[in-house]
C-alpha cells in the first residue's frame, strides 16, 4: 500500500532522514521505534507532505505521491494524528471533529461523527466545550477521532501514548488494536517501544535518520540489540 524508497529530508542544511526504505502492506500494523531525534516525526511529516522531500520517492497504491500537496494525500486516505495532539484549542470538541472531516461530504461526515462518539463516549459529553480544556487523555482521543473523521485508509499515529498515565496508555493501545481489527492500515510511532512492538505485525528501528533494523514485531522484541537499547533489559 505504502512504499518508501530512499527518502531523504533536511531542515535547512541539516539532514534529518538519510535514505529511508520501508513499506506498509494493506491491513498491516507497522511500528517505528527509535530514540528522540532519530527522525520518526520527520518521517511522518514527510509522508503527510507537510515537509518537503529532499530525495527519494513515496508511492501509495502504486502511484507516486512524492510531490503531492498535504490535502491531496488526506483525500487519498493518508491521515496523520500528529505528535502532541495538536487539537484546535479554542474551538469546540465537535468543531475539531468536523474539521477532521473537512474534505468529506456533509452526510458522510455526520455518520463518521456518530462513529467517533460511539468509540469515545466521553467526547460526546464534552462536544460543546473548547478542546483546550480537555485533559491530556481526552485530547488524545479527540486527536484520534479527528483523524478518523477523514476516513483514513492509512492512519499515521505519532506518539499517541506520550505523556499519558499508564491506564490511559492501555486505553489508547486498546483503541489502536480495535482500529486494526476493523482493517485500518496503521503506521505507528511510539516511544513506548515494548507496547508498540508487541502490537505490531512488523516494525522498523530508526537511528539518526536511517533504518537500522526491521523484522516482525515479535522478532524485534526478542532481539538483543533492541532489548538493550529500547526496552532497557
Amino acid at each position: 500500500m505504502l512504499e518508501v524508497e530512499g527518502l531523504a529530508c533536511r531542515y535547512g542544511r541539516i539532514p534529518a532522514l538519510k535514505g529511508i526504505d520501508l513499506r506498509v502492506a494493506q491491513g498491516e500494523l507497522v511500528s517505528l521505534v527509535g530514540a528522540n531525534g532519530a527522525g520518526k516525526t520527520t518521517l511522518l511529516r514527510a509522508l503527510s507532505g507537510v515537509l518537503p522531500t529532499w530525495a527519494g520517492q513515496v508511492r501509495f497504491e502504486g502511484a507516486d505521491i512524492t510531490a503531492l500537496a498535504p490535502e491531496r494525500r488526506v483525500r487519498l486516505g493518508i491521515v496523520q494524528v500528529p505528535e502532541g495532539r495538536q487539537v484546535f484549542g479554542p474551538l469546540t470538541v465537535e468543531d475539531n471533529l468536523r474539521l477532521g472531516g473537512y474534505l468529506r461530504r456533509r452526510a458522510e461526515a455526520g455518520r463518521a461523527l456518530e462513529r467517533v462518539y460511539a468509540m469515545f463516549p466521553v467526547l460526546r459529553g464534552k462536544r460543546s466545550e473548547p478542546a483546550g480544556t480537555l485533559s491530556g487523555g481526552q485530547q488524545q482521543m479527540l486527536a484520534i477521532g479527528r483523524g478518523l473523521m477523514a476516513a483514513p485508509r492509512l492512519l499515521l499515529l505519532d506518539e499517541p501514548s506520550m505523556g499519558l498515565a499508564p491506564r490511559l496508555v492501555e486505553e489508547i493501545f486498546a483503541c489502536v488494536r480495535s482500529l486494526k481489527a476493523e482493517a485500518t492500515t496503521i503506521f505507528l510511532v511510539d516511544q513506548n517501544a515494548r507496547a508498540a512492538l508487541a502490537i505490531a505485525d512488523r516494525a522498523y528501528v530508526l537511528e539518526t535518520g536511517r533504518v537500522v533494523l526491521e523484522g516482525s514485531g515479535h522478532d524485534l522484541l526478542s532481539n538483543d540489540q533492541v532489548r538493550e537499547a529500547y526496552l532497557g533489559l
Partner: peptide
C-alpha cells in the same frame, strides 16, 4: 480559525 490556531494540524486535516 483552525488554521490560525494550528497551521500544521489544519494541513493534516486537509
Amino acid at each position: 480559525l483552525a488554521t490560525s490556531n494550528n497551521r500544521l494540524a489544519a494541513q493534516l486535516a486537509g
